[in-house]
Design a protein around this nucleic acid. Sequence first.
DNA 1: TTGACAGGTAAGCGACTGCTTACGCATAAT
DNA 2: ATTATGCGTAAGCAGTCGCTTACCTGTCAA
Lengths: 110, 110
Amino acid sequence: MVAAPESKTDVFAAIGHPARRRMLDLLIVSDQSVTAIAGHFEMSRPAVSQHLRVLLDAGLVTEQRFGRERRYHLEPANLTLVREWIRTYDQFWDHHLQKLQKHLAKGKKK
Amino acid sequence: MVAAPESKTDVFAAIGHPARRRMLDLLIVSDQSVTAIAGHFEMSRPAVSQHLRVLLDAGLVTEQRFGRERRYHLEPANLTLVREWIRTYDQFWDHHLQKLQKHLAKGKKK
DNA sequence: TTGACAGGTAAGCGACTGCTTACGCATAAT
DNA sequence: ATTATGCGTAAGCAGTCGCTTACCTGTCAA
């Protein structure tokens, strides 16, 4: 598998903070500079920087320098880990529904 | 806003801890008592209890009493929040792939 | 050059996490 | 009625998180 070497931080932990999720959401629309991102939040710009660092360490974003700006870019590939983990539960859910259905089909018993 | 009333804790934060994810994974197989779950971990049983509490507050598990036991049961419905959040990124990913494909198609002479 | 702007990093601090041990309270077994 | 078992809760504590302010470097503009 693709054991991403850039994942110094747990992806699950990275998306555990609502502010970081919102940052990712912002980056869906377009790449954005730090100050642009910070414009959407109440917290200070350094705080935003620190959150972006976490996302960077988790491999969820990349940064690219443009002059004195740094554009942050969404890198959703590493979300695959989460996707796959969730998928396990889809199967459980389906299985559960199947059992329920069988149970209902059978049952007039009480 | 739309949040289920049993969600006192952020589901994303709840699955942010690896131990809690492993607990959910265990519960896929079957409902289990606290001591049974604790058997799979190095930490103390109260620590496990506390993790289970977080999962309970997030609505990811339910508990059912059997005599002096408490069986914890997986409740994957609340994972839907995560699933849906992730799905947004699937679309972004698809879009990204489409662009990549076009790009590759152009350079296909070789 | 001087200044303004973009943004990372350090230091400090209160709040929260995650763990432990000690305890309490049911329920089951004897 | 004791004793043992299952498990939650309280208290305490070290470590981490999330935020702030202060500072620093690097780039653009005049």
